[in-house]
Write a protein that binds this DNA or RNA. Structure first.
Length: 188
DNA sequence: GTACAGATTGAG
DNA sequence: TCAATCTGTACT
């Protein structure tokens, strides 16, 4: 069973979609090859209230405008001058909310190939050329339900990574979700 | 125009 | 512990 996730999956409250992405498969077409990995770690960003969000305060910039699209669009950007970060927009049009995909467990091969958001994009060959892509229609990148059942008790909710600048109120929120014990979850 | 820091990573 | 590397953003 391989079913591409539809608009209705993403156009939901962000925390629900963020959790439900665990166990789904990110699929990327690279030339003639299909590369896939199970999503094992995600984070939610919920602007404009979320101080850690690029859309905090309702800010709109050339970089973050894809966050405002209806759920299912790619928001991808470069951090630290060298690492791409793959996000998928969530919720309704006009709401700057998204899910950051932080780690994948490759279908085959070394589980450390995509155990972090920067490495995930490197392995999947994702960059700015995917900006704004609609993953419910794209032939370049999408997400599939392959019938994997995730035990809710195996899902850990933890504070998000690398956003201490947002202050304790937002840094403490347990909006990072991962599969307990999975070898592909990022280190920090 | 200039300064500065970041949703990271891997080496030392 | 720290540098790599560069764009968005704020401020002069």
């Amino acid at each position: 069973m391989r079913r591409r996730l539809k608009r209705s999956f993403y156009a939901r409250p962000t925390l629900i979609a963020t959790r439900d992405l665990l166990g789904k498969y990110l699929v990327r077409k690279i030339g003639g090859e299909l590369r896939a990995g199970k999503i094992v770690e995600t984070e939610a960003y919920i602007g404009p209230l979320d101080r850690a969000s690029h859309a905090y305060g309702g800010k709109v910039t050339p970089r973050n405008r894809a966050e405002y699209l209806v759920g299912g669009h790619v928001y991808i950007y470069l951090v630290y001058g060298m690492y791409w970060q793959l996000n998928i927009s969530t919720s309704r049009p006009g709401r700057p909310e998204c899910v950051l995909l932080r780690a994948l467990e490759p279908v085959s091969g070394d589980p450390r190939l995509a155990n972090g958001p920067g490495k995930l994009c490197r392995w999947m060959k994702l960059d700015g050329s995917l900006y704004g892509e609609d993953v419910t229609r794209s032939s370049r990148v999408w997400v599939e339900d392959r019938g994997v059942r995730v035990n809710p008790k195996a899902i850990v909710a933890a504070p998000r990574i690398g956003i201490d600048y947002a202050g304790p109120t937002w840094a403490r929120k347990r909006w990072r979700f991962y599969l307990r014990g999975n070898p592909a979850v990022s280190k920090s």
